[in-house]
Design a protein around this nucleic acid. Sequence first.
DNA 1: TTAAATTCTTATCATTTGACAAGTATTATT
DNA 2: AATAATACTTGTCAAATGATAAGAATTTAA
Lengths: 197, 197
Amino acid sequence: MTHQENKLVLNNFFHSLFPIEKETVEKITKNFTPFKLEKNSILLDKETVSTKTYFLEKGYMASFILNEDNDEIITNIFTAPCFVNDFLSFFKKEPTKETFQTITDCTFWETDLETVQDNFHSISQFREFSRLLFVINYHNLNDRLIEMISQKAETRYLKLLKQRPDIFKHVPLKIIASYLGITDTSLSRIRRDTSHF
Amino acid sequence: MTHQENKLVLNNFFHSLFPIEKETVEKITKNFTPFKLEKNSILLDKETVSTKTYFLEKGYMASFILNEDNDEIITNIFTAPCFVNDFLSFFKKEPTKETFQTITDCTFWETDLETVQDNFHSISQFREFSRLLFVINYHNLNDRLIEMISQKAETRYLKLLKQRPDIFKHVPLKIIASYLGITDTSLSRIRRDTSHF
DNA sequence: TTAAATTCTTATCATTTGACAAGTATTATT
DNA sequence: AATAATACTTGTCAAATGATAAGAATTTAA
């Protein structure tokens, strides 16, 4: 087994989320294959159908959409290890509106819908894991929406800085600004005004 | 069978989302029980664990959290027919942070986790339905977040007015304002400035 | 039906954030 | 190392939204 084929990080992700036997995880990840992308590569492009589900083993990514003015609106920032998916596109076979792009060099594992379906219908613990992954993703998204509704940019920035300090080391500020729903100018001002914290 | 026990709306909801046999739906909804709530009743209170999953058959609801200043921040507005759930609380048995309250008189169907689990692990089409429900809910939430990030309040208001005109007939404007992430004062101003549309 | 409570609107002023432009710093390319 | 490209900061002014208060309209309760 080469170093590239070491599924330790992938398999551990299952264990970290849900109590599950080693053998079951190995069965689930049997049909996952590894690959790498350099920084600033596109993993999944807008207006294409996502035929794979991706696990980000190492690196940083972002997803974005283009608004009417063709500005990139960052919709998510991903820190490994995590699954990176456009659920709607993958499960409903519809074109995605978002583009998923690497920020740093990244390593991935991928598998196709057929494998996911086999696992989903034959391994009850994978079903539970899948649902839990949805529940957690939904919950995180809901929390972020609540913050966007109820807190001003400075509060959101300070919270992100505290909860995900790592991304400030690896992700350009203009991407973080867009993720926070503000301009890079505004983020710069907020950072100046809060630098004493 | 009394009128109250007519599962037409509930059962049709399954058919509308996913191709599924009549008998399978009847099997799934066998253990759902009906109940009613008057307007301004609490369906699920903050800091309690959601032991049921709810289907809103008729009426309007909202969910909200309380921020630091004890202001209600509306997180969602529900129009029947739809499922109304705190996924995290229901599946992870954790206390919810949100309160779910009726806006009008409402009729519901409910069932418990044990029934959901039985269905989830024994009926493959229910698994597909459940996942699809998650996918659609996640997608709607993501769209709403993107709007919050990238569009100004007036644009979000006009879009809501176009996409869900019914709620403006049944839901107080101050609730809609909070849902849009603005004050009722601000919504009132926007409505004055856009009333010519 | 009247009184009270709630919702909605409007006005004024303050705060937050955006748009634009210029300049500096950093990173990538040759 | 030099050049170009990109990222970041700062300043100025404008636009969007919030906070507060007062009054009008509507709904609810007695």
